[in-house]
């Protein structure tokens, strides 16, 4: 067996998308179904496990469960593509740590052997945005666009766990990346600059300190509004929930009037590729996407 798996990717959907936001999965499957990249369902993945609480509890456990997921992909002979920043950080970081840290590697190997598994380090881990940006490339992505999102101003939100820690994840500049902006512009939209673009969505603090989380989300919504963004594009389902669901809660609870429709990137790309809002299940988004659709259809 040689390193480097070639035909397609194992889809690592994680816990959040399939269980809490299945409409995002619709857009993922439909969009990737039309691209020249094969993404396959693979049985047997557990939680990645999430990179906020789990490493805090026990780093070795966190890396071991991640390594077991890497083993599952290895057994299927496929590299992994993740659709959640959290899953990406966990799996990629585990892979890199296991390459460098011999002590950790032997602890993990011993635990895995107890359930009859062996990690060989032959699986690559990519975020879907890397597949779009590196494997396909913005130029070729444009050739799939049938209805360019002309005149639409998009506030790109990368999220933390696709960028940092950059010495382990090795994706893009940790504070001045280009990847999502380029993907947004490939749809024909404009990626607008806004203050606090790299502010964290705050998910990690929400369970313990709701007020801080709310302030973080409001700060971001404020500056996106100021930059006259028509909508927001995200790469992570957890960030998506923070801005989509929490925006509605904030408007209700604090009497605010934020109106930034939130799109998971494949939803935005799907629209640009000519898919209808119904095909993409956009009605399941909590924020109202209608004003943006009206703008696209030449209304207002």
């Amino acid at each position: 067996m040689v390193a480097g798996n070639s035909s397609g990717y194992a889809m690592f959907l994680g816990c959040v998308i399939p269980n809490l936001l299945p409409h995002l999965e619709i857009s993922i499957r439909k969009v990737f179904g039309k691209l020249d990249v094969e993404v396959k369902d693979v049985a047997g993945f557990s939680c990645c496990p999430e990179p906020i609480g789990t490493p805090g509890l026990d780093i070795t456990t966190w890396v071991t469960l991640a390594a077991r997921n890497l083993c599952v992909a290895e057994e299927a002979g496929l590299d992994i593509v993740t659709f959640c920043n959290g899953c990406f950080e966990t799996l990629k970081e585990a892979k890199v740590l296991l390459e460098h840290d011999a002590k950790l590697r032997s602890k993990v190997a011993e635990a895995l052997s107890k359930v009859g598994r062996e990690y060989r380090g032959r699986v690559e881990v990519k975020h879907f945005a890397q597949v779009l940006y590196n494997d396909i490339g913005p130029a070729k992505l444009r050739s799939y666009v049938e209805r360019p999102l002309k005149g639409v101003k998009v506030a790109a939100h990368y999220g933390c766990h696709i960028l940092r820690p950059s010495h382990l994840l090795q994706v893009d500049d940790p504070f001045n990346p280009v990847l999502l902006d380029a993907l947004v512009e490939a749809t024909g939209a404009e990626s607008v600059d806004y203050f606090r673009k790299f502010l964290c969505c705050g998910c990690g603090v929400g369970n313990l300190d709701e007020a801080t989380n709310v302030k973080m989300v409001m700060e971001k919504l404020h500056y996106m509004t100021q930059a006259k963004a028509d909508c927001m594009a995200v790469l992570c389902p957890v960030c998506f929930r923070q801005y989509d669901v929490r925006q509605m809660i904030i408007n209700k609870t604090y009497g605010k009037d934020y109106n930034i429709p939130v799109f998971y990137y494949t939803q935005l790309l799907g629209l640009a590729m000519g898919m209808t809002p119904d095909e993409l299940e956009l009605k399941s988004n909590r924020t109202k996407v209608d004003p943006l659709l009206a703008k696209l259809n030449g209304g207002k």
């Binding site: 399939p18 269980n19 299945p22 409409h23 999965e25 619709i26 499957r29 369902d41 049985a43 047997g44 993945f45 557990s46 026990d58 070795t60 456990t61 071991t64 469960l65 077991r68 599952v72 635990a111 895995l112 107890k114 359930v115 299940e281």
Partner: peptide
């Protein structure tokens, strides 16, 4: 309802066993 496939995730017994060993 959305026509999405059934989820085939890890056997919880294997995960539990791994977590016990750890």
């Amino acid at each position: 309802k959305m026509g999405l496939p059934e989820l085939k995730t890890a056997d919880p017994a294997e995960i539990r066993a791994l977590l016990e060993h750890l």
